[in-house]
């Protein structure tokens, strides 16, 4: 029983991180019709910048506040200086372009930080374990659960309740129609891309104390995020949420019961969903 609670929380913590990444990936696809291969690298960038901020300031909390906007601005700049010019091309070109960006960013990080992983101390408040009715559970992971839930609700509220959210959904539905409504589509795209990168950056900062900042964390997370959106359906926030929970659970229980072949569970779940709903649980049939 105690074990089950621990596993459940582990799954939720992982799902929270996955959601921060896959929600942005999905949102960008919804608005820009681009699968951003570099999205995982922005997550990695968040982790490394988090490391730097903590190293400079000595505190963790400023990193959580400062890094996401920085990553977001960088993302917005990259969108408006490269991607913007090729929206009319077939999707392969956008994928390749973001692939090129991923290479550049990943290698730049290698140059700047070197090949060894960088550990990040969680803030004192979140160090150690907390007693949850007989289960000692790491405070930091509990924080990740809370953070994931909070951001999930915030994103959902933003999209469904605010005017900006309405415009974003209008552009996602039909960019020409949105043009008629007076929405500046180019600006909406840049802002959404930046916001998605900021979310990924936030995920990276939050992940760093748990996973350390390491080279290759970008590709690892993007592959997981791809699995999430294949399961949940691209362009759907609800789908990202459901997909994150499923992948989080599959990985957690997989790692517990079949440590050598943990990944197989995740792929098996994805395969099963592909057989019955090739367009994902929340995606729309083409």
């Amino acid at each position: 029983m105690a074990n089950l609670l621990e596993q459940l929380l582990n799954a939720l913590a992982l799902a929270g991180l996955l959601f921060l990444v896959s929600a942005g990936l999905s949102l960008v696809f919804g608005i820009l019709r681009v699968v951003n291969f570099a999205h995982g690298v922005f997550y990695m960038l968040g982790a490394y910048l988090g490391f730097t901020t903590v190293a400079l300031s000595g505190w963790f909390w400023p990193a959580l506040v400062v890094v996401p906007p920085v990553v977001g601005v960088l993302g917005a700049l990259l969108e408006s200086s490269t991607l913007r010019f090729i929206y009319r091309r077939p999707p392969i070109y956008q994928l390749l372009l973001t692939f090129g960006l991923a290479l550049i960013l990943e290698e730049s990080i290698r140059v700047l930080y070197g090949p060894t992983a960088k550990g990040v101390e969680p803030p004192p408040l979140l160090q150690g374990a907390i007693d949850l009715g007989g289960v000692l559970y790491p405070r930091y992971r509990l924080f990740l659960v809370v953070l994931g839930c909070t951001v999930g609700v915030a994103v959902w509220l933003f999209l469904s309740r605010t005017r900006a959210g309405l415009v974003i959904r209008a552009v996602a539905q039909n960019s020409e129609m949105a043009d008629c409504l007076g929405a500046d589509v180019a600006r909406v795209r840049t802002l959404v891309f930046g916001a998605a990168c900021a979310l990924a950056g936030l995920g990276g900062v939050a992940a760093a104390p748990m996973t350390t900042a390491y080279l290759g964390m970008g590709i690892n997370v993007i592959v997981d995020a791809f699995v999430v959106v294949v399961i949940g359906g691209l362009g759907s926030i609800g789908g990202s949420m459901a997909g994150s929970l499923i992948v989080g659970a599959a990985q957690t229980w997989g790692a517990f019961y079949l440590p050598e072949t943990a990944m197989v569970i995740m792929y098996a779940v994805m395969g099963a969903i592909l057989v019955f709903r090739p367009w994902g649980l929340f995606g729309e049939e083409e």
Partner: peptide
């Protein structure tokens, strides 16, 4: 499995299986 999906989903699936 991968050919059950098309377009960008196919690309993502092939990457996932390759990793």
């Amino acid at each position: 499995f991968s050919t059950r999906a098309t377009g960008i989903y196919f690309a993502m699936l092939t990457l996932a299986f390759a990793q």
